[in-house]
């Protein structure tokens, strides 16, 4: 049984390493994500964000180190408490928006038809696609498909959301709406771990980890990370570049 105790971190990773063959993709990552918080993984493409999330969701076994999700090792029985949104949309192209969301709701064990319908309607409404619920996925734009993918991750009201670049391809208005919803979910106790490479997303997180080539180069609250640069008016982008350069200087030294 997944631990729902508020004292147990939703994600507790210590010294995690992972390699694809000889290529080390994650190098000794340690991250703790508290319940009801929004934690951002920020880094360039290829920095290891997706691999990290795939390890958390149980798609990959860690090479070394310890990984606890909701107090347990990642396993299939844990999945009903976790909502996962992969980077690839991963939708059934021949089916409608509603068919897709409803299918995954059934996979999550939502067998009561009436309750499931309510949950599916709500998830589709949250992502602003109620008027397109009966449309086939093939007729949707890339951003809309992204929203369907998010609706699937939300439909079973998981206590932990693992979202891999959920805001890619969204227009600014929708991005803002997504973040409003993420904040509401976090206030209600849902933990959200989100990967992104945009500083716009980073500013919304309670805590951030900057990733570079599989290593955490800094982690703290956005305010503390900005403060670390020593510049009073620095942005998160400045902070990210500051830590990248600092890491490079340390290597050179």
């Amino acid at each position: 049984m997944a631990s729902m105790e508020s004292g147990v971190p939703a994600v507790d990773v210590a010294d995690l390493s992972f390699s694809y063959g000889d290529r080390e993709v994650l190098k000794g990552l340690s991250i703790q994500v508290g319940r009801g918080t929004i934690y951002g993984l920020l880094g360039a493409n290829g920095s290891g964000k997706t691999t990290f999330i795939r390890v958390l969701v149980g798609l990959m076994k860690p090479g070394s180190g310890s990984v606890k999700v909701l107090g347990e090792d990642p396993s299939p029985k844990l999945t009903e408490h976790v909502g996962y949104m992969p980077q690839l949309n991963a939708l059934y192209q021949e089916l409608t928006v509603r068919n897709n969301v409803d299918f995954f709701a059934r996979m999550y064990g939502m067998n009561d038809r009436r309750k499931r319908k309510t949950a599916v309607d709500e998830a589709i409404s949250v992502v602003g696609l109620s008027d397109r619920a009966g449309d086939g996925i093939q007729s949707l734009s890339g951003g809309m498909r992204q929203r369907v993918s998010l609706a699937i991750a939300l439909v079973h009201s998981p206590s932990l959301l693992l979202l891999d670049e959920p805001t890619v391809g969204l227009d600014p208005e929708l991005r803002a709406a997504f973040w409003d919803h993420f904040r509401q979910l976090a206030s209600a106790g849902t933990t959200i771990l989100i990967s992104s490479h945009t500083m716009d997303d980073a500013a919304h997180c309670d805590r951030l980890a900057f990733l570079q080539t599989g290593k955490i180069i800094a982690q703290d609250s956005p305010a503390e990370l900005r403060k670390a640069t020593g510049q009073p008016d620095s942005t998160l982008e400045d902070a990210f570049l500051y830590f990248v350069r600092k890491g490079r200087d340390n290597v050179l030294a």
Partner: peptide
């Protein structure tokens, strides 16, 4: 190839 299997195995499906 569409990634739906990956998504499927992150649900409690056996």
């Amino acid at each position: 190839s569409q990634g739906t299997l990956e998504r499927l195995v992150t649900t409690p499906v056996s």
